[in-house]
Simulated scan of single mutants.
Amino acid sequence: MANLSAPNSNRRRQGSIDTARHTRYEPPQQVLDRYRPGKADPMRVLEVLIELFNAQHTALNKTVSHKTRQERADFLRRFFRNLRLKAGFKTLPDPRNLGQKHIQAMVTVWQRERLAPATIQTYLSFLRGLALWLGKPGFILKPDRYGLSLAEYQRHEHALHDKSWSAAGVDIDAVIGRVCGYDPYVGASLRLIRTMGLRRKEAVMLRPHCCVVAFAATGLPIEQRQADEYVWVQQGAKGGRPRFVPLDSLQRIEALQFAQSVAQGPDAHMGNPGRGLVENLRRFDYVMARFGITSKKLGVTAHGLRHQALIEHYIEQTGGVAPPVRGGEAGLELDAVARQSTARLAGHHRTRASGAYLGAVLYRRQHDEQAELPDEDALPAGD
């Protein structure tokens, strides 16, 4: 099997959007030319742009998920409506005539509403996509150019609190056992999350019979070999990034075998075959609520079980040293290797993404703490 990592050639050239699959009969510019700026309804023009371009990724030569399409389309419609409702513009601009004054006005609205940094980053990303559709790369400026402070737009990429089940005092095996007795499909999914660090959607969509592959079929470098067989996590993977989880422990093997005993048929997934994907995801959430697996009741979520698996993986990789989110301090080299392994297990390309589960890198935390110390020369005498 070929290496699944995306080649550099897959990245989209700055400012270009591939619309061939969406404009089979006429070029997009020809479609847009039928709607004259100042004459056409701006919201109708926006719908045309969404229809032409929304399926395309703005950085890579691929399509985006239906979830991303829906969220981006909903945001753009809301953005233009709010130019009038919240930003005070009497006349909506044609999307092709969107100006910096419109962006600035809406950023000010977001500041007033105290939106989370991650939300603001997402909104600006959606607007960059719109700018690319219009052939205006670079139109959306950096956040600070709109008067946003670092605290208002910078995401917190490292965990400040341990979200694992054990940190909340939950008897993991007992809770999962009760769920298995009530709904084996959901219980099997929880066992997969617990042992392999899967996401909810990945676990529900996993096909436990046909996902097992030999190491030779993974395409992984020989120096990364950890087991004879691997679980190929493909369907439901975030960003369409598949990965391979080694069957290198009895817990993982037993979780997979239980999933195989529950799944009905060699090609069956972990959801109830009588339900579609959306229904199975809703069923999963319903069972979580029924057994108190919520922030309000047990103080944990199903995603916290993924945190549990990744934290335990880090501890295993460091030889027993806990991650920073639990107060541990592995050496920098050991920490770096363990983080890389944890990020790979989690399905992230960036090692720093592991900080969302493990906490800040030690040297970065020390640097931040040092930066907060007052200058000794500025202290009053005697302090």
Rank of each mutant, 00 (worst) to 15 (best):
M1I: 13
I17F: 11
Q29H: 07
Y35C: 06
Y35I: 05
K39E: 11
E47C: 00
F53A: 02
Q56P: 08
N61E: 03
Q70M: 12
Q70H: 09
E71H: 14
D74V: 15
R77M: 10
K86L: 12
K86Y: 07
K90P: 09
N97T: 04
Q111W: 13
Q121S: 06
T122Q: 10
L134F: 08
I140P: 02
P143M: 12
D144R: 11
R145Y: 14
G147C: 12
Y153G: 03
Q154H: 08
H156K: 07
A159K: 01
S166K: 04
D171W: 09
S189T: 13
L190A: 15
T195K: 12
R199Q: 09
R199N: 14
C211Q: 02
T218D: 00
G219L: 00
E223Q: 14
W232P: 00
K238F: 11
K238T: 03
P242G: 05
R243S: 00
L250Y: 09
Q264S: 10
N272V: 11
R282W: 01
A302R: 07
G304A: 01
G304N: 10
L305Y: 01
Q308W: 11
I315D: 02
T318N: 07
G319W: 04
G327V: 06
G331R: 04
L334R: 12
A336Q: 10
A338N: 10
Q340W: 10
A343N: 13
L345R: 13
G359F: 07
V361T: 07
L362I: 15
D368T: 03
Q370A: 13
A371P: 07
L373F: 08
D377F: 07
L379M: 08
A381N: 06
D383S: 04
